[in-house]
Each structure stands twice: as C-alpha cells, then as structure tokens.
Design a protein around this nucleic acid. Sequence first.
DNA 1: TGTGTTCTATGTCAGGCGTCATAATACTGA
DNA 2: TCAGTATTATGACGCCTGACATAGAACACA
Lengths: 205, 205
Amino acid sequence: MAEGDRSPRERMVFSAVQLIRREGVTSTSMRDVVEHARAPRGSLQHYFPGGKEQLVNEAVEWAARFASGRIDRFLAGMRRPTPSKLFSAMAGQWVEEFESAGFGAGCPLAAATIDCADSTASTRTAIASGFACWQRPVGQALIGLGVPARKAASLAVLMISALEGAILLARAQQDTAPLRTVVRELGPLLDDSVQSGAAVRDHVR
Amino acid sequence: MAEGDRSPRERMVFSAVQLIRREGVTSTSMRDVVEHARAPRGSLQHYFPGGKEQLVNEAVEWAARFASGRIDRFLAGMRRPTPSKLFSAMAGQWVEEFESAGFGAGCPLAAATIDCADSTASTRTAIASGFACWQRPVGQALIGLGVPARKAASLAVLMISALEGAILLARAQQDTAPLRTVVRELGPLLDDSVQSGAAVRDHVR
DNA sequence: TGTGTTCTATGTCAGGCGTCATAATACTGA
DNA sequence: TCAGTATTATGACGCCTGACATAGAACACA
C-alpha cells in the first residue's frame, strides 16, 4: 500500500478506487480524485483523454486485479489450505478492514455495478471482466484443493456472491456479523465438495 | 403494480424506487422522480420537506416492505414448501425480471447501501432496518419449515447475502446464470438443515 | 358564501459537475 | 543549444442539481 513511488497516473487510478469504494461512482468527482491523489489537475485530460469513463474503467480493472491477486496470496499463507479456509480468509480481510477502518468503504466492483451497469456500457463490460478475473483464481484454487472441476466454478460464484452480499449487509448494519455468518454456514458445504466421488455417493446413499 | 389510483405522494416514492434501482441514488434527481411519477414538482417540498434524504429513506422503507411481503406470498403459493424452494422463488423472481425486462434494475437496498452508507446516516439506518425487515420473515419461514430456530436467522442471512451478490453478478455480466448457480448450490444445504437432530448426528457420524 | 388549509405552479439561486481551450513549463534526445 | 514531446497550470463554458421563495389554485368545512 506504499504510495510514495507511484506515478501520478497510478495514484489517480488508485485514488479513484478508494473514493468509489466509499461514495460510489457518481458521487466521486474528477476533482476529488485529483485532490486525493495529490496529482495535478491538468494531468486528468492528459492521462485519461476518455474522461471519467476511462478513469472508472481503469479503477475497476485495478480493483479486480487486486482481488484476484489476493487469492493466491491467501493460499500461499496457509499450511493446510481448504476451501472453507480460503473463503474464511477472503471474508476475514473484510472483517479486519471494517474493524480497523470502519464501515465506510465497500467493494468497488459492487459500487460500479450499481452506478454504471445500466448507464455506461463500457464500464459494465469492465466490471464483467473484473468479476471473471476474480472468479477464475478462486475456481482454480478450489480445483487445486480437490474440488471437482465441474463444481469448482459454481462454488466460486457462490463464494463471491455470498461475500458481496455479506459486505453489503455488514456496511448497512455496521456489523461484521453477516461476514462471519456466511463463513460459518458455507464452510462445511465448501469442504464437503472436496470429498471423493465415492464418499459423495455414500452420503447421498 | 397498478398505479392509476395511487396518490401523487405514493407515486413519487414508488418512482424513486424504480429510478434508484436503475441508476443508483446519486444519479436519481428529484426532477427525474417528479417526471417519472407524473407528479407536480411543487409537491416535492410539500410532501418531502426533508428533501431528497427523506424521499430516499421512504423509498428504502417501501422497498424493504415489498421484499418482506413477498416472502409470505411465495410460501402461500407452494403446496409443499421447503427452504430450497423458498430460496428458488426469491431468486426466480429476479431471473424472471431480468429475462423479461433486461438487466437494467437491481436491488434498491443494495443501491442505497453503495451510495449512502458512508454519507447519509439516516439512510444507512433505514437500510439496516430494511434488511432486518426482510430477513425476519425469511427466518420465520425457515422455522416454520422445520429449521431449528438457532440456525434459521443465520441461514436467512446467507440466503439474502447470496441473493444480493448473485444479483450484482447477474447485472454485471448480463446473465442470469449466477442466480441459478447459487440456487443450485445452496439448495441442498438449506434443505439439509431441516433434518432432525438425530439425522444430523448420523450424517456427521 | 366565506375562510383557512392543502396542494400545485413556476422562477431563482448558489454550487458542483465534466469537459474543453489555451498556455506555460519540464523533460528528452540530437 | 535547440526542437519536439510530455506534462502541468489555469480559466472558462454549459449543464444539472437540491433547495428555496412566492404566488396561485383547489378543496373542505362552517
């Protein structure tokens, strides 16, 4: 999260992410971004000739890459990774942030979806790519943990859906309980999917 | 959904919900609401002296009551209700809307959370009450279907979280697949929770 | 019929927005 | 040193927003 050595352009994209997370896309003005990034205002039209739309799209892509990159880091930090532990780590990141920094900021992809899905086609496309870019490593991780390939993609969608929804609930009621709840309730389901085919048949009988 | 016999005031709240669902709170202007509701502009300050904040808060409350009221209607329309069927109905409502009306509109509670959670305290409170008002009948329904009371509230949170997240994903990628996926993957978990204590012990061994 | 209240109509205001135009400055390579 | 490019600085424009002021119309009720 060091920011001293980033270029003004990078800082502006990063600042856009931060502001969008808090206030949404529409309430985040170009001037706010410039000020938050301590960047020169004239650089806006220079680096983002496509205007706010371009800046927002790049912020979405940045956020998606960030979320996607965290997945492998979560796995690398575990001695005995399991699907439920991965999900717990994903949600835990949000619990930590909410507890240490408050409930002001949510997921930038969610914010962009709410504010742009129906108005800005290019942004909607960027968000779709972003979610896909996030879902891919989750699914791959599940496969690596023993989840059948057929099931992995579906469980990745479930994990991301539950996480996004829990983030919304947590922010609304300013309580991390929803995040803990979905982790607790979903954990067994995720780990059960690791069972071999024979075990699954035994369970179903 | 008939609207011919509603008062201008009701129409304005309803229109606010519709517009917030599509563009978010910030992009929805008072003038847009008035025009959409075919209501006189002067009525705004008359019925909503609290300004936009009041209008948005009432829209949130309206939407929450609507979502909460649908739960009982879903149950009433089933001959052999189960938790998974209830969840399927909740998600199915969104699948139908997306397929018939496109992916333009999402959940107004989610939109209000994104746009107002960090900026407008009274709206955030209204959203929190709204989610609670929605979660309550879901939990009660689960209890009525045989889910242990201890577990019902947690599963209600999980259902709403997964649904909200799936709505986001569906809008972003303009595909109802995420909704179908969470229903398919979560269904067994929900119905398993109906099992009696003995059956649960057998399963765990 | 009169009178007070509820509702509607319309104009105005200050402020913020994204975008553009224009110019000054900094940097790079010959 | 010089030219050409990259970057920054600053002002302006038209538009939209929420809020307000003021007056008029519609209505209920005595």
